[in-house]
Amino acid sequence: MKKQLYLISGMGADERMFRYLQFPPEYDVHYLPWLKPQPNEPFTDYAARMAAGITTEGPVSLLGLSFGGMISLEIARQRPVEKVILISTIKNTRERPAYFNLVRRFRLYRLNSRWMFRQRTFVVQFYMTAKTPEEAALLKDYLRNSDFDFMYWAIRTVIHWENEELHSAVVHIHGSKDHTFPLKYVKPDYTINGGGHFMIMNQADEINRILSREL
């Protein structure tokens, strides 16, 4: 029987983020799409609804990118999971960047009006570090099609996320030039030299070598 691997993309992104990843042949690979959050839905409740998309029997492994990594860790608390692969994310409260505390303390996320949402391109491009025309085009598509209500809920959820509990089998891969979650706050198992928040696409070969060892 094949092993089961479920992928969860970053905030507002989709399965295209994983197009350059390669997985061992003994895995069946599935993608868990984002769901529309309920108003003020707790993170645990949202993760439970995401976990309901896992339809295969027995233990599974999860691979979460950015915000998808946080969802993966929450799902791993709610159901049997063999391994959690984290890419370009944080895994506990201690790894939260300092600027998160400022945004949280002064509730700056409330400034995320619909007008500001439409003007966010420059900020997002800085934090994502898209390096190629393909990445820039994909990012532009995500920005054009992203939902304000989902993004507002997700940003508020990330800013308030608290986690001290880790699954026993977590593998954390991070980039040395990640602007969203700076490396100085993060303690990964693997560091991709020069990797930004988009390294899953532009440095996929290095990530694939790690996946071949860890899966």
Rank of each mutant, 00 (worst) to 15 (best):
D45C: 10
A47H: 00
A51L: 02
A52Q: 14
A52C: 14
G53L: 05
I54R: 04
S61T: 08
G64H: 05
G68T: 06
G68K: 00
G68F: 01
M70V: 13
L73I: 07
L73E: 01
L73C: 10
L73D: 01
E74G: 05
I75C: 05
R77A: 14
Q78E: 07
R79L: 10
V84G: 02
I87T: 09
I87W: 02
I90C: 07
I90T: 12
K91P: 03
K91C: 06
K91E: 10
N92C: 07
R96F: 01
F100Q: 10
L102W: 13
R105V: 04
F106I: 09
F106P: 07
R110H: 15
L111A: 11
N112H: 12
R114V: 14
W115L: 15
M116L: 15
F117V: 08
Q119V: 14
Q119F: 12
Q119P: 11
R120A: 11
T121G: 09
V124M: 09
V124A: 10
M128T: 11
A130D: 04
K131A: 06
K131Y: 03
T132N: 10
P133M: 06
P133A: 09
P133D: 04
E134W: 13
E135K: 00
A136S: 14
A137I: 05
L138D: 02
L139V: 01
D141I: 01
D141P: 00
Y142S: 00
R144G: 05
N145E: 13
D149K: 09
D149M: 04
F150Q: 03
F150W: 06
W153Y: 04
I155Q: 12
V158W: 01
W161K: 07
W161C: 00
N163C: 09
N163K: 00
N163I: 02
E165D: 14
L166T: 09
L166V: 02
S168N: 13
A169Q: 14
I173C: 00
I173N: 05
F181D: 02
F181K: 02
P182L: 05
L183N: 08
L183M: 12
V186E: 09
V186T: 09
K187Y: 11
D189E: 06
Y190C: 14
